[in-house]
Amino acid sequence: MGNGEEYRRRINRAQDYIEQNLGRSLSLEEVAQQAAFSPYHFHRLYTAMTGESLYQFILRLRLEKAAAVAVACPHRSITEIALETGFSSPATFARAFKAKFGVSASEYRGRKDRKAVGKDRNALRKDRNAAASTRPYLGEVMNTFPAQSINVEDHPQKQLAYLRHVGPYAGDSALFEGLWGRYCAWAGPRGLLGAPNSEMVCIYHDNPEITEDDKLRISLGVTVAPGTETSGEINLLTIPAGKYVCARFELTSKDYAGAWNTLMGWLPNSGYQPDDRPVYETYLSDPSEDPEGKHLVEIRMGVKPL
């Protein structure tokens, strides 16, 4: 069995589990366990391989099942069907059903020609397809950015003297400039910037497709010698040793999402799968010195054999 087929087999297993348990609450950790993937990476991998997020898949199956039951069992109440198909309340179900089908469940049940309902949904379908076209797919990754190289390497344990930010960060170059400015004001007088074998790093602790924006955590800083003293808002953390896939790119600020999509699209046929170690970027150049403002960046993700 090829590596891509193994990823597909695991995704299919997760989808089977979801379908068998639509009527109850399903956590990311629970579904990821069925696919034997790390919960941290599963949501992004699922989207890359199917073209819709895990949440969208579960919601779609619940709504489609509810619609079928509403038609096949006209004696059953809409509220009963909503709760049976995993919705937390009739109000939540009503909003989701109308958003998908364009009419209420009662109206859907009463219509003789449900193909007409489908025509009402053409605009919704176009919107969904347009959104899906920007998502990556296995074997044909969309919205990608070409890598200079992608290699699997063994890396030693590293100590990072870091400054942490909690909150939104996507596309906010001013935020990162401010964070690095604060960090350098601490690290510069201590001789930590540009030290031999040091690396400038940003760790992403949370998956932005799952965690709410105001709770997202990043830790940026420079790798330092063990035992380095920190102070104020600067702390130490350990980046574990082991195998990492290292994908190198030359990026502008708008290219980062495409670079991450490239890496996720590379994984299924690589013979590796992500593990639970931190995912981080290492910055290998100063974009202020590039006439186009480009940054040489290496994305590193801990991996283990598939």
Rank of each mutant, 00 (worst) to 15 (best):
E5N: 05
R8E: 14
E19A: 08
L54E: 03
Q56R: 13
L59H: 13
L63H: 03
E64P: 06
V71L: 01
C73S: 00
E80Y: 02
F93P: 12
K98M: 04
G102N: 11
G102W: 07
G118T: 12
D120I: 15
R121F: 04
N122D: 13
N122W: 14
L124M: 14
R128D: 10
A130V: 01
S133F: 14
R135W: 09
L138F: 12
V141R: 02
M142S: 13
N143E: 07
Q159V: 13
L163H: 13
Y169D: 09
A174K: 14
G178H: 15
R190E: 10
G191P: 04
E199F: 03
I203F: 11
I203G: 11
T211R: 13
D213Q: 13
D213Y: 05
G221C: 08
G221E: 04
T228F: 04
S231N: 14
G232Q: 08
L236S: 11
A241L: 08
Y244N: 03
C246M: 05
A247K: 02
F249D: 06
A259Y: 06
P268Y: 02
P268H: 02
P268C: 09
Q273G: 15
S285F: 05
S288K: 00
S288R: 04
I299Q: 09
R300I: 06
M301A: 07
G302T: 02
